[in-house]
Amino acid sequence: MPREGYQEKLDALREDVLYMSEVVLERLRMGLDALETKDEDLAWEVIEGDDEVNQLYLELEQDCIDLLALQQPVASDLRFIAASFKIITDLERIADLATNLGDYTLEAERDLYPDVDIQEIGTLVIEMVEASMDAYDEEDPDACIAIAEQDDTIDERCEAASGTIVRDLIEREVDDETGEEEIEQLMADVSRLLLTVRDLERVGDHAVNIAARTLYMVENDDDLIY
Rank of each mutant, 00 (worst) to 15 (best):
residue 125 V to I: 10
residue 136 Y to I: 03
residue 6 Y to P: 01
residue 126 I to V: 15
residue 149 E to A: 13
residue 156 E to A: 15
residue 122 G to W: 06
residue 47 I to W: 14
residue 62 Q to F: 02
residue 84 S to C: 10
residue 74 V to G: 07
residue 223 D to F: 01
residue 63 D to L: 03
residue 63 D to E: 12
residue 151 D to C: 09
residue 9 K to R: 15
residue 9 K to A: 10
residue 59 E to A: 14
residue 172 R to A: 10
residue 11 D to Q: 14
residue 56 L to Y: 13
residue 17 V to W: 12
residue 185 Q to T: 13
residue 185 Q to V: 02
residue 14 R to G: 02
residue 93 R to L: 12
residue 77 D to L: 04
residue 221 D to G: 06
residue 193 L to M: 15
residue 5 G to I: 06
residue 143 A to G: 10
residue 158 C to M: 09
residue 150 Q to I: 01
residue 20 M to E: 07
residue 194 L to A: 06
residue 42 L to G: 12
residue 67 L to Q: 11
residue 201 E to T: 03
residue 203 V to C: 06
residue 212 A to R: 08
residue 137 D to C: 07
residue 68 L to N: 06
residue 195 L to I: 04
residue 194 L to D: 04
residue 56 L to N: 15
residue 96 D to K: 07
residue 153 T to D: 15
residue 89 T to W: 08
residue 29 R to C: 02
residue 173 E to L: 02
residue 90 D to I: 01
residue 226 Y to P: 03
residue 71 Q to D: 08
residue 198 R to V: 00
residue 181 E to P: 00
residue 132 S to C: 06
residue 217 M to D: 13
residue 144 C to G: 07
residue 98 A to E: 07
residue 141 P to W: 12
residue 215 L to F: 11
residue 112 L to T: 02
residue 29 R to M: 09
residue 225 I to L: 15
residue 151 D to Y: 08
residue 63 D to M: 11
residue 146 A to I: 10
residue 177 E to C: 02
residue 77 D to M: 03
residue 195 L to H: 07
residue 145 I to G: 02
residue 30 M to V: 01
residue 113 Y to T: 12
residue 41 D to W: 00
residue 33 D to L: 14
residue 187 M to S: 15
residue 65 I to F: 09
residue 5 G to A: 13
residue 27 R to I: 00
residue 105 T to K: 14
residue 167 R to P: 02
residue 151 D to T: 03
residue 189 D to A: 15
residue 144 C to K: 10
residue 76 S to V: 11
residue 34 A to L: 07
residue 104 Y to N: 11
residue 64 C to G: 05
residue 186 L to P: 00
residue 201 E to V: 00
residue 222 D to C: 05
residue 10 L to K: 02
residue 97 L to K: 12
residue 195 L to D: 13
residue 98 A to W: 09
residue 43 A to K: 14
residue 22 E to C: 10
residue 25 L to G: 07
residue 90 D to R: 11
residue 209 N to A: 05
residue 152 D to S: 13
residue 13 L to D: 04
residue 95 A to F: 02
residue 53 V to S: 12
residue 206 H to W: 10
residue 64 C to H: 05
residue 209 N to W: 07
residue 173 E to G: 00
residue 24 V to D: 14
residue 218 V to Q: 08
residue 25 L to K: 15
residue 142 D to T: 13
residue 21 S to Y: 04
residue 34 A to V: 03
residue 62 Q to W: 04
residue 108 A to G: 03
residue 99 T to I: 03
residue 138 E to G: 02
residue 78 L to E: 08
residue 75 A to Q: 13
residue 71 Q to N: 11
residue 137 D to V: 01
residue 176 D to Q: 12
residue 136 Y to D: 10
residue 55 Q to L: 13
residue 49 G to W: 08
residue 50 D to F: 03
residue 211 A to H: 12
residue 97 L to R: 15
residue 44 W to Y: 14
residue 32 L to Y: 00
residue 14 R to E: 11
residue 14 R to P: 01
residue 5 G to Q: 10
residue 79 R to A: 05
residue 86 K to P: 05
residue 168 D to L: 06
residue 68 L to G: 06
residue 209 N to G: 09
residue 173 E to S: 11
residue 21 S to C: 08
residue 182 E to V: 13
residue 55 Q to C: 01
residue 165 I to T: 04
residue 172 R to V: 11
residue 152 D to N: 14
residue 33 D to H: 05
residue 73 P to Q: 08
residue 197 V to H: 09
residue 31 G to Y: 08
residue 204 G to L: 02
residue 146 A to N: 13
residue 191 S to F: 14
residue 25 L to V: 06
